[in-house]
Write a protein that binds this DNA or RNA. Structure first.
Lengths: 346, 346
DNA sequence: CTGTTAGCGCGTTCAA
DNA sequence: TTGAACGCGCTAACAG
């Protein structure tokens, strides 16, 4: 690979002139510029980005920390990040951390080592104080999950309000025995959704029953939804509606309900969260809260770019959610609900 | 961020000694080494990777070109790549190219610009000669897709054999009217699978019917599978078995068949390819060819690392596939097959 | 408008 | 065993 010096020699100009031409500076004679351009072409010169980076003291690179790209929710966000980064002239390092702190720290160290100009974290737990140590000194933004106690810029939906929307809808349908499939983790979204679930119930004059709550122990998976639904629906006074904190959980819950002979939505209503592609692949199509995943990722890039350029950026960006009503939800029907447990499914 | 010079000053040694200690060289007095270590700690020194890279003339970085991370097949491969890269001390730049050549070239240019030491491409089309221009000069390996005319190291499954396995299975089940949902693209896997489909038919003394073949026009999507199945099964002498070149297509085909009142597998057998998670989320569970996606990605990293270290690497690595028989396939039943078109589904 | 020169932070000769 | 000095390829300040 040719260097600037070789280009300079071939064009019979100084290395500085080459640099000027390459960086589009105007104060250079057209005739010299032409000679440089010609030499660049002839030698197939390409600038050494590493050298540029060292000199400019920047890497034009972002690190992306994700627990698991295989999860369609994260995959969609990353898709938005990748696009946004490209639009802003940044490359993105992708790292799978599986939520392991040691790994996450090791990756954020790259900010110190000048290998990245900023970081986007996809799943920070509540109480992860250590992240703040990095965020204070380097551009860090969080997607979806964050800790309200720290002022790290983040982009998310209003989980509290979204859940209230779901609950209001369920209540308006006449459901009173409403269960939820939550999850065992320390995410803000989890806490917010559970809180809104309980609050909505109480405000409607319905007591919160711990028997109507399950916590997925192994992540937002189909299997967990299945397992939770089985136990939730095996109760004598079973819930007639299930609010699941992710679509994968909802899909599993629907499968579990069907397996037990319940019809969805006739016997049990199931609601999801996120709106991944799979919600409309099988009947019943899942009623769910749509999150603008791609947009979330894209916005995160804009925030981190702002931070890098030392601009003022909002500490929180809340993107609109949307409850889409499809086939997995229906009005409560006392008669059907009470007898359904004796029916065997089709 | 402290530099080596500052560390050297604080430890009252030369910058060269600091470098030696940092790089674990043995020829340094224990007492000096201790002073250096202490200074490093005190100043929270972190090496500047950009400077290291410039000096060492390497970036310890890989570029990954993928058409779409949102596709679970690619997501799983990338998962393997990410893990493999980490194990080998490499970072990976992820780029979504959507198969656009201009973008792909622009990304491979990063090899010339010293921003990456190697590249892994996930979906190279047949006849993409230009890739060879890069592969000749830089470490490039291909995952899943490749062009047999060029000797670029690649890792894949034996698509020809896998399809033969599927066809032999279908034939053994008594099916003779076997359709296929292929796809409109220039991938080697597509050509190989279609070729083996036709060959297997001919070898079994069954003529190839163009009416039994459909080509998805918009990618490996659920929607395409649905649409293709609708048209395939609307024929009077409809196929009794469908071989789909991806699971998403198969999932769509199953939905399409159900929608038309056919039972799967009783009335029509559907077979997929890849084995993404979603094949066992809904009944019927999909009979499919399992590809070791994670392993494919992981192996690709090993190949590219070998190339970077100028080692001899195999030109082709074929990983084992596996036909898993689940619920979407059943023996051909003349009676059912002939009457099924009059039945309306459950 | 152009060229010379001094670093960016690090690894690595070469002498001592 | 140690340190001085050079240079990786580039940008930018400065002088002309």
């Amino acid at each position: 690979m040719a260097t600037m010096l070789e280009v300079a020699k071939r064009a019979h100009v100084s290395i500085a002139t080459v640099s000027r031409v390459l960086n589009g500076q105007t104060n250079v004679a057209p005739e010299m510029a032409a000679r440089v351009t010609e030499a660049v072409r002839a030698l197939a010169y390409e600038p050494n980005l590493i050298a540029q980076n060292l000199r400019r003291n920047e890497s034009r690179t972002l690190v992306i920390l994700t627990p698991n790209i295989t999860n369609p929710y994260y995959a969609n966000i990353i898709s938005g990040i990748a696009q946004g980064a490209q639009e802003n002239g940044y490359s993105s390092f992708l790292f799978n951390t599986e939520g392991k702190r040691a790994l996450e720290e090791q990756i954020l160290e790259r900010l110190k080592k000048h290998q990245a100009d900023g970081a986007i974290m996809l799943a920070a737990e509540l109480g992860a104080d250590w992240i703040y140590d990095y965020a204070k000194e380097y551009p860090v933004v969080q997607c979806s999950e964050f800790d309200p106690r720290f002022s790290i810029p983040h982009v998310c939906v209003d989980n509290e309000q979204a859940t209230k929307d779901v609950m209001a809808y369920l209540l308006s349908l006449g459901h009173t025995r409403i269960g939820t499939i939550s999850i065992e983790n320390r995410f803000h979204s989890t806490a917010a959704r559970l809180h809104a679930y309980k609050t909505s119930l109480v405000q409607a004059g319905i007591p919160v029953e711990e028997d109507y709550i399950r916590y997925a122990t192994q992540g937002y998976t189909f299997k967990m939804g299945l397992k939770s639904a089985r136990s939730l629906l095996a109760q004598e006074k079973r819930p007639t509606a299930l609010f699941c904190v992710s679509d994968m959980l909802a899909l599993g819950a629907i499968a579990g309900a069907k397996e037990m002979g319940f019809r969805v939505p006739n016997d049990v209503t199931v609601i999801g969260f996120d709106d991944v592609e799979y919600t409309t692949m099988f009947h019943p199509y899942v009623t769910t809260v749509v999150q603008p995943c791609y947009q979330i990722g894209h916005t995160a890039v804009e925030l981190v770019c702002g931070l890098i350029q030392r601009q003022q950026v909002p500490q929180e960006v809340i993107l609109p959610h949307n409850l889409v009503i499809r086939e997995s939800s229906a009005p409560f029907d006392g008669y059907l609900a009470n007898f359904a447990s004796h029916v065997t499914g089709c």
